[in-house]
Each structure stands twice: as structure tokens, then as C-alpha cells.
Design a protein around this nucleic acid. Sequence first.
DNA 1: CGAAAAGTTGAACTGAATCAATGCCGGTGG
DNA 2: CCACCGGCATTGATTCAGTTCAACTTTTCG
Lengths: 236, 236
Amino acid sequence: MAAAASEKVWAKRLSKLADLSESDVIVLGRLTSRSLDFRAHLELQQKERPDGLLIVLEGFACRFRKFAVGRQQNVAYFVPGDIIDITSKTEDGICALSKCRVAPLSREIYRGLIEQHPQIGAALRSAKIIEEAITREWLINLGARNGRERIAHFLCEMLVRLNAVGLVSKNSCAFPISQADLSATLGLSPVHVNRSLQDLRQEGMIELKSRVLHVEDFSRLERFAGFTPQYLQSHS
Amino acid sequence: MAAAASEKVWAKRLSKLADLSESDVIVLGRLTSRSLDFRAHLELQQKERPDGLLIVLEGFACRFRKFAVGRQQNVAYFVPGDIIDITSKTEDGICALSKCRVAPLSREIYRGLIEQHPQIGAALRSAKIIEEAITREWLINLGARNGRERIAHFLCEMLVRLNAVGLVSKNSCAFPISQADLSATLGLSPVHVNRSLQDLRQEGMIELKSRVLHVEDFSRLERFAGFTPQYLQSHS
DNA sequence: CGAAAAGTTGAACTGAATCAATGCCGGTGG
DNA sequence: CCACCGGCATTGATTCAGTTCAACTTTTCG
């Protein structure tokens, strides 16, 4: 059931970024029929097509930079409906944060898609712009907020992004991110992430237990974090 | 002399990102004949064409986010040869870091340029990719490095970028950035920037006085900062 | 020249890192 | 079914990098 729905998550996402026709949606659905599974912490890479793209169907992935052993900085998260461009000739890697399912997409098909389906093209451009805005927002998050605010801001963003693809219900969502991963994402030590999370819990701003996140009063968390969701919306 | 040369800085920059023909260079030169001047700390915006682009000819500018009064985070720097897209519907602003001269460019001309001059188009795409890579690198800088390393990394990047447009000679370049600006860029307090700079000076890694930066041993600074310049190069 | 901006210094404080140990839970194999 | 193991979360104690406040000096620029 969930697996069946996940094939449509890409279309669901893109349809919020541009006016897709029914045939557009069908085209997108066909492209996600074949999928690959990865276990948590596995590096996502395509031996077959190292220049390709991946569409996330289920689970979370991230782009990261590795330094000395142990030291790592994540620079982007990918949730269901997101498209991952592996090409970036950078020394960065992509890895699964949780068990995840992705659909491979060759660069030729991707290009064809944009050329032959204007609305899909518009949606993909919009997605790209949002991805860039997210990176800038993360930069601001690391540069200008303290531990608790940083975590809160990140959680706000995830909730909005997951909500856009129907993965939030009753203010709750699956959240299979370890504190160690959060620490590599937010530029904080694992211990400090743990304590800051506790603070947020004690303040009643979040509930996070056994990989489920629940935020009763989202606007309160938003206010605390200084979060404004415009950057996640289509500006077309 | 310097002013005359600055009209060609855009062509100089783009010619390193793609194989421009002589006529390409001439076209680029024509577009930068008309220019505007801004004093330091003035907000760069075009009343006439709020949707336009700006080509930096001289001086530095930056994109920033303002929070409470006093609190500010810079998210990108623009040096001569860079192109600034003002469109971003974000709440971010662009301001001059130093006295600077820019050439306005309408979006229509920009689009025409890309369509009618394939090599210029390629160069502009390459510039865009580099701009994104820089943002990611800044994110890593803020997330994973301490004060001194952060400053060192930033200086390395600036030296490479300025060198690409001929603004570094004998390991020196004009560097009209105040410590307060650095602090808003690197997510550090002004006082800490001051002290970290002194540390770098005492270690003999940099000389920075009266708005001139000199780095005798660049590879040493590079090593200290963990700087790798690939991300600033064209990947075409 | 004079005012305002920028840089420097000291002292006190604190958010966050580090080190190290312990507790918890889910899975796996005997 | 239970014992054991590994990954993850939690806790305490200590240290340190970085902030804050405030005064002072120097430089820049209009």
C-alpha cells in the first residue's frame, strides 16, 4: 500500500510546483516503476550510470562531505519526491540516511523530459531553485542560530517538505534520523544535539521518540526557530 | 586605466569558463559599457528594473539576510566578473561591501545572450554551477571549521577568485572588507574575527593591513584551511 | 579637519566540545 | 527463549572556543 503510493510521490511533488497535465503525471509514474533499495548508511551510487539522477521514492538520503575519519558535514537532505543529481563532480558523496528506495533516471531521459513536457520542465526548474534556496537557508542556519534554534529550524523545514508529499499526518511523521546524523547536518556535537533535543522536548516544542516526530504546535516551533517557509514554495 | 580594464573583466572571467570567440568577447564588452556606481554599504537595487541582473566591474558586493537589528548573515560574495541575479524572490538583499561599479543587464538581453551565443551560454551555466558549489562550500565552512580555519578558507577562496580576474599580483590583492563584514560572513563575532586574524598574522600565514591582503605562502594557508580549489573551476 | 567607522584590547561569561562511562533497545544466533 | 552484540541515546564532568560588554585607539573619508 505504502509502497504502491510511493511510486507516485514524484508526480505528487512536481504537481505542486507547476500545472501538470494528466499525461504528465502518467509519464512521471512510468519513470519510477523500476526502483532500487538501499540500506541505511549505504553510499548511493550507480555503478551502471555514474552520471545519472535518482528519484527518491521512500526514505531519506543526504549529500555529505567527509573530512578526517569521523568528521563529516551533510550539505543537503533528500526526501521522497526529491531528485538527486549525482553528477556534481565534487568529492561529495550521497548516502542513505535510512532504508530507502530510489528510481534511477538517465540523463538523456531527464533532458528529453524537460524538452518534451514543458510543464514538467517548469516543475523541475522550480525544484532546482528550491534546492538552492534550501542550501542558502542552511548556511544562514549554521551561521546565525544557536543549537536549539538550529535544530528547531531544521525540523520545521523537514515537516514542511514531508507534508508536501503527504508524509505528515496529525502533526506526526516518520523521522528515522539518528542524533549522530543530525550532528553532522547541523554542525553540532552529538552530545550537544542530544541535550538540545531534550531542551526542546522539555519546553514541549517537540516530541521525538522511536523515530517518530510529533509537533503539536507548529507555529510555536516556527516562531522559536525564526522559520519562514516561503523559500520552500514555488516562485513561478 | 583600471577603470578601462574593468569593463573587460566580465569577458575575462567568462572566457575561463568556456571557449569564447572574439565576437563573443566583443558582445560582452558592449554590454558593460554603461555602469552604475555605489558607495560602500549601499543596498544594490535597480529602481528601474527590479527584475534585472548586475555585472560586477569593480569592488565587492554581497547577498545577505537581515534578522534583528545588527544581526546579519551574508550568504554570497560577488567580485569583479561575477553576475548578480537580483530576481531571487527571497527576502534577501544585495549590498555593496566596498565602493563598487556594476553594469545593469535586463533579463531579456540576458536570455537573448544565452540563446544566440552558445559559448557565452555555456560559460554562464558554468558560472552558475560554480556559484552553487561556493554556497555548499560555505555551508561546510560554517559547519565544520573553527574560527581561524574558517577565515583562512574564506581568504583562500577570495584569492583564487580574484586571481581568476587578474586582481592578484605578487600574492597581494586589494581587500576592502571590514572585520564586521567578515563576522557577518563567517558566523563569528567581530571580536573573535579580530583575534583570529591576529593569530593568523602572528603565525605568518597572512598579512592584512590597510585593506591590502598579502599571502606569502599560499599553499601553507591552503593546507591550514583544508582548502581545495576544484569547486571554483569549470567542470565542463 | 573633524566625525564616524573600523580596529584593538581586557575581563567576565557561556554555549558548545570533548572525554568517558552507562543505559537502552532491537536483532541475531545458539 | 534467552544471551549477547552493536548501534544509538543519555548522563556527568571538565575544558575551551567563542561571545559579550565596554573602553580605547587608529584610520578613513566626506
